[in-house]
């Protein structure tokens, strides 16, 4: 089964009118040069959100190497839904050990430990789920037009505002655990971004022009994760894919995809039930892509 934007167009319009009429009023936070006085403390963080699954346990670090590293140390011994959160990371990382800029006081860096009961091959929707949770939370809380680029990039005005690193340990037929790492650039000002990424990355304060309360945003992201994870657990994958399409900016566009040294281009036709990108070549042939970096060529 394929999912395309067209299929859900009518649904999409009503949703936009219903759920995103105007942003929620921003919390009153005093800020200067992008710094907000929403200081993290263990106590504050521990009461931010407690779901049936997500946030049953919350572990807070002032600073740690990487929250994904901490989560993977706990691994199988940990309780499902455990959140490991840090105010700063010494070696924040993305995929393939790329650096994730992680200064203190300004951003969100946290990892959710999950132990889904499904098969490893069914776990790929977890990355799409994370993108849905973060993008919808940003839209709802700040009113900014955050979008997803396949499969889980989070962009505002074409620049990266948040990142997701999902690491899984599994055997052939069983998932040991999933470390779902999320980093959101919240109150990081432009001058805190290294020059090398300043044209590629952004933050909520840069886009909004005023500070955003990290803790309240975290609470909303966690509640969305709880909702969508429960949706996946009850096997309603289609509902998640619909919401993903609603927040996505890739499908329907002319795109190119780079996989290793190969670059292919065509029309992003839709996504499969596993979350694969369905690419239609000019020849009319169709390929399902499970990896690759997408560049949007033409809207």
């Amino acid at each position: 089964m394929h999912f395309t934007k067209e299929t859900f167009m009518s649904k999409r319009r009503t949703k936009e009118n219903k759920n995103y009429p105007s942003p929620n009023p921003l919390p009153q936070v005093e800020g200067a040069r992008g710094r907000v006085e929403d200081v993290f403390s263990g106590e504050k963080i521990k009461t931010v959100f407690k779901g049936d699954i997500i946030g049953r346990e919350i572990i807070f670090y002032e600073i740690t190497a990487s929250t994904n590293d901490r989560a993977m140390e706990i691994g199988e011994r940990g309780i499902e839904g455990t959140i490991i959160i840090a105010d700063a990371q010494e070696h924040g990382r993305g995929r393939f050990d790329r650096e994730w800029i992680s200064p203190p006081d300004v951003n969100l860096y946290f990892t959710v430990l999950l132990k889904p009961p499904f098969l490893p091959k069914e776990a790929t929707l977890i990355t799409l789920m994370a993108a849905v949770a973060v993008v919808s939370a940003i839209r709802e809380y700040t009113g900014l037009n955050a979008v997803i680029k396949w499969p889980n990039d989070i962009l505002i005005r074409g620049k990266k505002a948040a990142g997701i690193l999902t690491e899984m340990k599994s055997s052939m037929d069983r998932i040991d655990y999933v470390a779902l790492g999320i980093g959101v650039n919240v109150n990081m000002s432009l001058d805190m971004l290294p020059e090398s990424v300043s044209t590629l990355a952004t933050s909520l304060i840069i886009e909004k022009g005023q500070p955003v309360n990290r803790i309240e945003l975290l609470g909303i992201i966690l509640s969305k994760l709880e909702y969508w994870y429960k949706t996946l657990l009850s096997n309603e994958r289609k509902a998640l894919l619909k919401e993903w399409l609603h927040l996505d900016s890739t499908i329907g566009k002319e795109i190119s995809v780079k996989i290793q040294d190969r670059v292919v281009s065509g029309t992003a036709e839709g996504i499969s039930e596993e979350g694969e990108l369905i690419l239609r070549f000019p020849s009319g042939n169709i390929e399902k892509m499970c990896a690759g970096e997408v560049t949007i060529l033409k809207n």
Binding site: R95, P151, K169, S170, E274, C290
Partner: peptide, 25 residues
């Protein structure tokens, strides 16, 4: 890697790698 989910594959035995059947990438 699939849909940017990084699945670490572990050995289920102690032993010596006698053949790598797939090329990188």
């Amino acid at each position: 890697e699939a849909m940017k989910l990084m699945n670490e594959i572990e050995s289920d035995v102690d032993g010596v790698i006698s053949k790598i059947l797939v090329e990188n990438g």
